[in-house]
């Protein structure tokens, strides 16, 4: 009876599957277990943020997704396919792009060449030209500096170039590693405003790793808090922003009675 056999299929269809699913991921950084069993979901069209201090394992998490590091255990499922342990270029071809921490542009190449390299895995010229126009529509300053060497751009412009270079892939998901790092509060606001527009206008799915909880939670739909390689909290962004622990540790709103050492809680101290 063909009609009755259709039932399990429709059941499977009812399940809402996230675009990116991470299950029980464990990654070692040398002898150190940097990711200790992390599970998280990034639904399509949403912005998810991972908050945490230095050394919490946030960057390692992104590197494991991008294939720069191989996980010891666990699964990374992207659009229904397991991708853990693949080569980085295979993962990029699936539409996952990482915008690395600290900008990491190609300093001696021009802005235009940097953007071209973002579309390295693409070969359709019309599509690449269209992606370039999209990048220039979000970052007009890059259009003005097309022929300039990327190393001579200001920090904020380099961050814009790094994001624009990632957009050239027309990615299905962007992994952003501390886009606010080293930027003034004003520039941070500007960058995050553009990220918000990308999400709302272009429907871009993003996984944003941040120490700056205020801007990240403002942008995100959902947030996770990571400490020493584990997810210790997971909630909607509004509820996380309202929670007392987050306010105290990440937003700097110390309540009355907080002890003195809270004031010099170690934040970003080097680099």
């Amino acid at each position: 009876m063909p009609l009755t056999t259709a039932k399990p299929l429709s059941e499977a269809g009812d399940q809402t599957q996230a675009l990116l699913e991470i299950r029980n991921l464990e990654t070692f950084y040398g002898p150190i277990m940097a990711i200790r069993g992390v599970s998280l979901d990034v639904p399509e069209g949403k912005v998810v943020t991972v908050l945490g201090a230095n050394g919490a394992g946030k960057t390692t998490l992104l590197k494991t997704i991008s294939g720069i590091m191989d996980p010891e255990k666990g699964r990374i499922v992207f659009d229904g396919h397991e991708i853990q342990g693949r080569e980085p270029h295979q993962i990029v071809r699936r539409g996952i792009v990482q915008v690395p921490e600290g900008r990491e542009v190609f300093p001696l190449l021009t802005v235009d060449e940097n953007l071209s390299l973002g579309a390295y895995t693409k070969s359709n010229r019309a599509e690449i030209a269209q992606a370039r126009e999209l990048v220039f529509s979000y970052f007009p300053i890059l259009a003005e500096r097309r022929q300039q060497e990327a190393g001579t751009l200001s920090g904020g412009q380099q961050q814009m170039l790094a994001i624009g270079r990632g957009l050239m892939l027309k990615p299905r998901i962007m992994l952003l590693d501390e886009p606010s790092l080293g930027l003034s509060p004003l520039l941070t606001q500007e960058i995050f405003e553009i990220l918000r527009r990308l999400n709302q206008e272009a429907g871009m799915t993003m996984l944003v790793v941040e120490q700056n909880a205020a801007v990240a939670l403002d942008l995100a739909n959902h947030g996770y808090v990571m400490e020493l390689g584990r997810i210790v909290m997971s909630d909607t962004a509004e509820r996380l922003a309202a929670s007392e622990d987050i306010q105290r540790f990440y937003l700097g709103h110390a309540n009355e009675g907080a002890r003195g050492e809270r004031r010099w809680k170690k934040r970003k101290t080097w680099r």
Binding site: E104, V105, F106
Partner: peptide, 11 residues
Amino acid sequence: QNQMAAYYMGI
């Protein structure tokens, strides 16, 4: 110029 970034670009 930047090996890590090259990996991120899918090179």
